[in-house]
């Protein structure tokens, strides 16, 4: 709970603010995850493009193995998002997992956070299986990372957002106010004459 604040009192008692109850969570984490998945599915790389990429870049003899890996990847994706979702959601989850595990050797903290961030709590076994599938797929075709980068260059319609973001060149300080007190508590003062009375 946040401590009592002057501005809290002013919001309650003065008539200069918009009155609304912001404790009411219209958007929660679950709703936000769904929103993110929907947006992800609409932009950049798609499952069809991944399938097409491996079909085009592999010899016929290797294509069957790649198809199996992709099928396995989708199966694991289904376990992660939940079986009650439609094919579109599962495929978009497959795309996300493919991107997230691309070039990764193990399921580390960063990857775990990214997957949890997208889907919420998930099965680690299914994630490990995804990682293994992606690793085997990428070993068979070298240019997979470049392909993903090209596909996602315009994700969210921003291009290289960080280079154009407002405030990127503005110096910002993280300094905060600290307690400004140089007066020791009076009960710590032991007067010299009292110290002299001590029986050392």
């Amino acid at each position: 709970m946040s401590p009592p604040r002057l501005t809290g009192a002013l919001r309650s008692f003065s008539s200069v603010c918009k009155k609304e109850d912001i404790a009411e969570d219209e958007y929660n984490l679950k709703a936000k995850r769904l929103k993110r998945q929907e947006r992800f599915a609409k932009e950049g790389l798609t499952w069809q493009k991944i399938v097409q990429f491996f079909t085009q870049h592999l010899d016929k003899k290797d294509q069957q193995a790649a198809q199996q890996e992709l099928k396995g990847l989708l199966h694991s994706a289904k376990q992660i998002v939940g079986a009650d979702h439609g094919q579109d959601t599962i495929e978009s989850a497959g795309v996300f997992l493919f991107e997230t595990f691309l070039g990764r050797e193990r399921l580390g903290a960063e990857e775990t956070r990214a997957v949890r961030h997208m889907f919420g709590p998930f099965s680690a076994t299914a994630a490990e299986a995804c990682l293994a599938s992606v690793s085997r797929l990428v070993t068979s075709v070298g240019e997979a990372e470049a392909f993903v980068r090209t596909q996602n260059a315009g994700r969210y319609g921003l291009g290289d957002a960080s280079s154009t973001a407002f405030g990127r060149n503005i110096a910002f300080s993280h300094d905060g106010y600290i307690l400004d007190c140089h007066e020791p508590p009076p009960w710590l003062d032991v007067p010299d004459e009292d110290a002299g009375d001590l029986g050392f």
Binding site: L10, S14, C17, K18, F172, D175, Y177
Partner: peptide
């Protein structure tokens, strides 16, 4: 649209004022 109000400006000052006073 209440993008700014007096308590908001006071909060901004106490949260960011120490190192960003000029801005």
């Amino acid at each position: 649209n209440f993008l700014f109000d007096i308590p908001k400006m006071m909060d901004l000052c106490v949260l960011f004022g120490k190192g960003n006073a000029q801005l």
